[in-house]
C-alpha cells in the first residue's frame, strides 16, 4: 500500500517544460533550454528537465538530481512571484 501511495504522489510530477508558458510570460523568452545550476548540489539541468510540482498554490521546480527546490512561482490576481533562491545561477543563450 505504501508503494502505491508513493507512486501516486510521484505520478503527479511533470517536467519544467509543462510550465514553459509561465516561464516565458516572466522572462519574455523560452526558458526551457536555459540551464539552472542547483544551489544545493551544483548539478546543471535544463529548466525544461526540472521536476515540476504544479498541483498546489503555486509551482515548485525541483532539481532532478537532489530534489531540492530550485524555483517557486506564484501567480496572484495582481502579480507574479518568482523565487529562484535554489538556483546558483540560470544560464541562457545571449540571443533568444
Amino acid at each position: 500500500m505504501d508503494d502505491e501511495v508513493a507512486d501516486m504522489n510521484m505520478a503527479l510530477m511533470v517536467d519544467g517544460n509543462a510550465v514553459a508558458g509561465e516561464l516565458q510570460q516572466i522572462f519574455g523568452r523560452d526558458m526551457t533550454t536555459a540551464v539552472a545550476r542547483c544551489a544545493g548540489c551544483a548539478s546543471d539541468a535544463e529548466m525544461g528537465a526540472l521536476l515540476a510540482f504544479t498541483r498546489g498554490p503555486g509551482v515548485v521546480l525541483r532539481c532532478p538530481t537532489c530534489r531540492a527546490a530550485i524555483a517557486r512561482i506564484v501567480e496572484t490576481t495582481t502579480a507574479i512571484y518568482l523565487d529562484a533562491r535554489g538556483a546558483a545561477y540560470v544560464r541562457m543563450g545571449s540571443r533568444p
Binding site: D2, R55, P57
Partner: peptide, 11 residues
C-alpha cells in the same frame, strides 16, 4: 479529495 503537492512524498 484532490491531491496537492509541492514535492515528493517524504517517507
Amino acid at each position: 479529495f484532490p491531491v496537492l503537492s509541492a514535492g515528493p512524498t517524504p517517507h
